[in-house]
Structures are given as C-alpha cells and as structure tokens.
Amino acid sequence: MAAPESGDGNNGAARMVTLISSDNTRFEVEAAAASLSQTLQLTILDGGGGGGDGIPLPNVDSATLSKVLEYCIKHAPAAANGGAPNATAVDRAELERFDNEFVNIDQSVLYSLIMAAHNLEIEGLQSLVAKKVADMIKGKSPMEIRRTLGFPDPTPEEQAEMNAHMLEYGWAYE
C-alpha cells in the first residue's frame, strides 16, 4: 500500500515516523496515526522513529503492516479528538462502514491482523477483529466453526472423538 508513503518527509505540519516491517519495507506515517498503538506510543513520545532511524517491527510483515496502518490513518482523527464529542453522526457512520469493509477479508489476513493488533496493542483494532471472529463463530456447529476459521481437516482419530462427543450430546455432527 502506497498511501502512507507520501514521501514528503517532515515538510508537512504533522510529525512523521517511519516503521520498518519484518521484511524490511519502510512505512512513513503521521505520528498521530502510529500512536494508536500503545506499544509504539511511548517510543514516539520519546522522539523515536523520526528521520532515518525508523522503528523496526520484527513481528509484522509488510502486507499486514500496510493493512494495520490503513486502519490507523482512518481512525487517527477521531482518536485525536479524544472520543470525538464533536464528531458528527455522518463521521461515525462513515467509520463504521469503513470498519465493516475493513474486516471483510481472507482468514489468513485476519489472523495476521489479530496478531499484529495484539502485539502493537491497538485497542480499537483488537476489538474489531475479535468481534469479526466472534461473528464467524456464532450459531455454528463445531465442524462449521472449523471450516469457517480454516482449521485443517481433522485427523481420523480427531474426527472419531468429535463424533463421540456429538453423539453424547445428541447433536448431529454436521
């Protein structure tokens, strides 16, 4: 994703920081956006991440980081307003629409995103992805949950054990 790499350096009014993904891609974003991460916030407050240094994030690959930053950039203005008492209903509806769209993604991306949100401690993103997974689970049988979440097919032994449990509870396996 190219959006955060505006290339303008520190020319703009907003302070910029550089984040470096596990595969060495550099992302330049506004400090306000990166500060949504509790983990990064302290480093940024200490003046880190500016100029050529960059903050290395060895646990997050570039694809995931660009996705995470997309979320942060969108949510930074609202967060800056401190819960935004002056945010209009339109703004909030827009954010909600963005969030729904945002988690409408492949399971593998979703898992990377869960881990990244957890490691970077981005509260809003953590609850957004947790809610998404919870919605994927609700109202499904154990086997449907496995499929939805992309678990590998159970081994014959696992399958037999699950069947036994289901039978005991009077459930159909499927």
Partner: peptide, 27 residues
Amino acid sequence: LPEDILFEIFSRVQEDARDLLCCAFTC
C-alpha cells in the same frame, strides 16, 4: 492464538453458552 486474544473473541460469544459449548468441541 494467545489466551488473551481467545478471551477477546470468546467474550463476544459469551452471551450464548451454547455457542461456547460448540467452540469447546472444535479442537
């Protein structure tokens, strides 16, 4: 997934114990 993340997920399924029972049988 780390327990904290699973907690975040399951606490959003928590309002219906039957969904959690299904989760318990998943793996």
